[in-house]
């Protein structure tokens, strides 16, 4: 079970359908939808926060939030 928090820099994943309930509404509204493409662009020191590009939006989110969102990695 991978989450956004387990992505490596430059890696791409797709938000899984099962995740829907655990995605905070605000993130959903910003485009973090099931099926959307997520790429990890940069990590702050201590792996927190994460700078991601999801569905075309460039955002920074905290690790605890990222860990709640399940993804399927691109190479699966």
């Amino acid at each position: 079970m991978s989450t956004i928090a387990s992505l490596h820099i430059g890696e791409i994943g797709y938000i899984s359908e099962e995740s829907l309930e655990s995605i905070p509404l605000k993130l959903l509204e910003m485009g973090c939808l099931p099926g959307a493409e997520v790429e990890l662009i940069q990590l702050a020191p201590l792996q927190d926060p994460l700078y991601i590009c999801v569905n075309g939006s460039h955002l920074a989110i905290r690790k605890e939030t990222a860990a709640k969102i399940q993804i399927l990695k691109a190479n699966n």
Binding site: K26, L27, P49, L59, R62, T65
Partner: peptide, 8 residues
């Protein structure tokens, strides 16, 4: 606490 910041 909630943190989502756009990187414009």
């Amino acid at each position: 606490s909630f943190f989502v910041v756009e990187m414009p």
